[in-house]
């Protein structure tokens, strides 16, 4: 299975911390671009904060997008790989999860947010937006479960993961991961 369009979402612990002004993430993401500290090639910031339960504020990149995501009414940080990635599927999953954790950690430490945002360490969501190679079926779930579990352990040592497939076959392949054994992202 040759997968690239893998994404990982970490959820913000207190959804009310995201006020109406998802727009406050616009300057943060611009600063991240200016700082030149992100991996890959970040390009621009796209604001979809006006769309209910949408992708929120996106930091568009060449290889991957990052976003303050508002989908399903559950704000979170998403790292979504778009272009080809190297390594095995497990390594690609680990890279994506690692980038999501890194991004969430950055937001937790973002001075402009004054510590208002923290992320849940007991769950995350993995999606694959590739209906050709990863339709949202039991077969895909069976084929990827082991790699997802292993990738989580690679990124969050000591974490135990329980996986549950979400949605129907019209939606992208999505797995809800319940995690135990991780106290805080900063320590991860």
């Amino acid at each position: 299975m040759d997968l690239h369009r893998i994404s990982a979402k970490l959820f913000i612990a207190d959804a009310s911390a995201i006020s109406r002004a998802a727009g406050e993430y616009i300057p943060i993401f611009h600063r991240w671009i200016q700082g030149g500290e992100l991996s890959g090639l970040p390009l621009d910031v796209a604001d979809y904060g006006h769309v209910i339960d949408g992708p929120g504020v996106m930091l568009i990149g060449h290889e991957a997008d990052r976003s303050l995501d508002l989908a399903d009414g559950r704000p979170g940080f998403v790292y979504a790989r778009k272009r080809e990635a190297a390594g095995s599927v497990r390594e690609r999953l680990a890279q994506v999860i690692g980038e999501a954790v890194e991004g969430a950690r950055r937001l937790e430490n973002e001075p402009a947010l004054e510590g208002a945002v923290s992320f849940r360490t007991d769950e995350l969501q993995i999606s694959v937006k590739d209906r050709l190679n990863a339709p949202n079926t039991q077969a895909t779930f069976d084929a990827l479960s082991q790699d997802i579990g292993a990738a989580i352990s690679d990124v969050l040592p000591g974490a135990a993961a329980t996986l549950a497939q979400l949605g129907d076959d019209r939606r992208p392949f999505t797995v809800q991961v319940t995690v135990s054994g991780v106290a805080q992202l900063a320590a991860a």
């Binding site: 992708p55 997008d65 937006k129």
Partner: peptide
């Protein structure tokens, strides 16, 4: 539905 899938698989989901 197909437009939605294409936006998701090839674009930014909008």
């Amino acid at each position: 539905e197909v437009l939605a899938e294409c936006a998701e698989d090839h674009s930014d989901g909008i």
